[in-house]
Amino acid sequence: MPDLPTLLFLSIFFPTIAAAGYAVSSRNLVHSVLFLVITFIGVAMSFILLQAEFAATVQILIYVGAVSVLVLFAIMLTRHITGILTRTFVEKWWAGIGIALLTFLFLGMAVFDDTRFSVLPYVTDFVGNNRKTIEPIGIALMTDYALPFETLGVLLTVALVGAIVLTRRMDEKETKTKGESK
């Protein structure tokens, strides 16, 4: 009989994997996104099992909150993809499945039978007795990781501005030609 953490892990593992499988194989893209949200929540729960509560919160805020809504909007803005499609997969889909299966066999055998991984310690009290994680993370972000943090801010700004510039319609031209034709 496995102990409680293992049971919790297994109860996260199977639904998450099933949801991920449905997300990549569903013909309806909206269903794909909804099952992707379930997968994200499962990953966040595994973060909580690993005592990374802040990462779980960030995962839910950004992936479940922002990314999935963004993907849904992109689906609604492009036609032809809600509802049933005739051709969802590429013609040589068996090759893709084969490559993925080989990767899975390779990775799975590499991680599952290796005793080096199973003897790594699980440190219970790694930051003193009170197990605070958010405070040292904030301090690390402001001291040792200040430069990557700032760079990330610049990267996010550039990405957002770039996304807006890319998807902006050339309204001036369109209104001009419309006005002239009328």
Partner: peptide, 26 residues
């Protein structure tokens, strides 16, 4: 190992999706 196996399974499912789906958003 359990977490690594979990990650390997998720990664392989994602890889299969990248290889077989036709839709860019998928």
């Amino acid at each position: 190992n359990f977490y690594l196996f979990f990650a390997a399974a998720l990664f392989s499912i994602g890889l299969a999706g990248v290889l077989i789906r036709r839709n860019t958003i998928a």
